[in-house]
Design a protein around this nucleic acid. Structure first.
Lengths: 194, 194
DNA sequence: TTAAAAACTAACTGACCAGTCAGTTATTCT
DNA sequence: AGAATAACTGACTGGTCAGTTAGTTTTTAA
């Protein structure tokens, strides 16, 4: 792995666990066994380093989802919805740093003044909402899901799973313990019982 | 209002909008028209100031909810649930600073090493969950709500509304636009249709 | 009235940190 | 080989910030 990639990886971990302000360039340098000057050779500023991190997280998330759905077949929309939610939770537990980073306030603060940052965040959240929406729409087509607004319901589902993951990352309560209830709730809320 | 209360109020606003690290004691001092030394006369450290802020936010939230439910009557558990959710959203929009503060990572990070901080956060979230749980349990008693685990479902509902508020505060999408869908979803998910 | 206590001030300190720069080492290409 | 470029280094700088302190003003109470 190149030194630049190493720096990016270390920065992802540090920004995710300690936050932007509480991560010093010296720390990133130390973790990668480089001089602090080297980081500024590869990245013009701390902010640019953060944007690179966010960009790579975005790429990672989009890639993971496209790979997961590439050759997946679902019996119906409801099943697709449930499996999408499961995959989201699985991803959140296997790529903790990504979600920790997204649950910090800094990216959203930066997005207010930096269009590129805003774009990354929108790409990420649209990816999530799009998948849930697609499942809901498909479910309505195949009659596995009741009549509802696919987009808005997708946003609500994202709010729920994202909320669960956030509470877990904040050590407030455990996501795993809620899994069965979550799936049951989604079924009660969306399934078409005829 | 005493100078100490003024400092607390300014600190709440600054910690909520800029975060812990991005708020300097000089800034707090400037906003309250005092010397920075005065803050250290009233609060031993920046961390203690933050804890005082969190404590007052906790008191505020508990007070608001106990006041709202003091002399409220509900037709049944389902109605209570819906109105609790509505009140949560109302509070989040009228006391923005409180929820901005709770949507930052710093309090949860501090909670890991500071039991008092952890206690404040638990009190706040238990307050929320308890109310939803009480509504669900009442709804099961009066048959307005289906069979489900009240505690876990209450947590899921909190995840959803908290997620919505967070997305709104992060400027990702608007809570108001989802309100009708949220109530409809809660009804589909919890209402007992006989 | 006055003395003690509480509240407040502003200059100061030491630590830290993002970013620079002048110079060194490694790589590539002819 | 040797020149040119890319990658890397680490000491240094200017600025910021939490917290201190010695001294001043205000309040309290006897």
């Amino acid at each position: 792995m190149s030194k630049k990639e190493n720096i990016l990886k270390a920065a992802t971990l540090l920004f995710a666990t300690n936050g932007f302000k509480d991560t010093s360039m010296t720390e990133v340098a130390h973790m990668t066994g480089t001089a602090s000057g080297t980081i500024f050779y590869h990245f013009t500023s701390k902010e640019e380093l953060f944007l690179s991190v966010l960009s790579s997280v975005k790429d990672g998330i989009l890639e993971e989802f496209s790979q997961y759905f590439r050759d997946k077949e679902f019996a119906n929309g409801l099943e697709m919805l449930e499996e999408s939610v499961s995959f989201y939770l699985y991803l959140a537990s296997s790529k903790t740093e990504w979600f920790l980073l997204l649950h910090r306030y800094y990216p959203y603060k930066l997005a207010k003044e930096n269009p590129a940052c805003r774009r990354f965040l929108e790409d990420i959240y649209n990816c999530f909402v799009d998948i849930f929406e697609k499942a809901l729409a498909q479910g309505q087509a195949d009659a596995s899901i009741v009549k509802l607004s696919p987009r808005k319901t997708a946003m609500l589902i994202l709010s729920t799973v994202d909320g669960i993951v956030r509470f877990k990352n904040c050590n407030l309560y455990d996501a795993g313990a809620l899994y069965n209830e979550l799936i049951a709730t989604i079924r009660r809320m969306a399934a078409n019982q005829n």
